[in-house]
Write a protein that binds this DNA or RNA. Sequence first.
DNA 1: CCTACCGATCGGTAGG
DNA 2: CCTACCGATCGGTAGG
Lengths: 203, 203
Amino acid sequence: MTQPPDDPTPKGERTRQALLDAAYQQFVQRGFHGASIRVIADGAGITPGGIYNHFAGKDDLFAAVVLAHHPLTRIFPQLIAATGNSAEERLRNAAQRITDELTADEGLLNLFFIEMIECQGAHLATLATTLMPKALAFVSELHASVATPPGITPIGLLQTFVGTVLATVFTRRFLASAGAPTAALAGIEQFMDIYLHGILREE
Amino acid sequence: MTQPPDDPTPKGERTRQALLDAAYQQFVQRGFHGASIRVIADGAGITPGGIYNHFAGKDDLFAAVVLAHHPLTRIFPQLIAATGNSAEERLRNAAQRITDELTADEGLLNLFFIEMIECQGAHLATLATTLMPKALAFVSELHASVATPPGITPIGLLQTFVGTVLATVFTRRFLASAGAPTAALAGIEQFMDIYLHGILREE
DNA sequence: CCTACCGATCGGTAGG
DNA sequence: CCTACCGATCGGTAGG
């Protein structure tokens, strides 16, 4: 008997996905070293040994989580998919979408930080080579179509835009943790007011 | 015999400082759970058990490191100490100083992230109550003296400024990790060009 | 502040 | 994919 080849979701594949989900939750809550293989296995409904039928080890499992959930995998597609009748409108729309996504699931930003700290950014080069070409093409076109301050390269435009969005999400989160009243804080609209007024000069 | 009371640095105090230094190095390199009490003790030149003469436990040691090295303890004083003949000059000067300090020691920013992820920002409220009053007084005065876009509160001014500085340091680090050519990246001057042009409107 | 040690938990493997 | 288990290391303590 061979295994039925076109089941909607093969048994092994479902387990693998359950492992990825459980691992994501644990890693973003406790960090790489703080997350336990046993708790992850539990969350996926299997015993610890079973993990090694799907992943070579804890590092391999973490790498798979990074590939599936790293914020960069959300930011760049949202940037390209943004709509609007002008460069300004498209950037505002993209900023809003990215902020919403990063705010809805705090784990995404955590994963960014955990990877940089506990893996020293080892996966960033891989992610970048996959994602950057399209993002750079998009931003080069944008850069050519608008007037920016002197010294801003296309990659600098991408950097300052993404940096401003990350700054919004991050500062709102830590100021809320510190006890600041949320209503007094700047949101993505204010950050974009400042950023776009500063970067889009008269043509 | 009593202990000589005004030695330049008492024996126990030197050990405590050595522990703080070793702990800082380990925590920012490996995260809270990744750092080992034994390695920290080694780094301070004592045996693991000796740590508990100075700190109640690993958490207590981490809390002391956060109090001593958290970026907020550097950012706010630098902001207040900044010099210049106009609001713009003072903000540029402060941004430059903060950026230099956070770039010179990558551990500082790591500590910010580690504390937010592995301690869920538990120490931020304490830090804020110590540091915010002076910073808010400074920024309230600044807010009153310049024209900002509508909807920007004094705390929003502080938030967007600090956010912009953090965005500079963070995006430069991760883009460098990802293999981007450093020369093409925006630095604090470019970020401030954009930010200040966006936030300081005509009076 | 050291020696010696505690129980607990870690990531991972062998064999089925 | 489970059972049973490995050696290693963890944070922390007792007693001196």
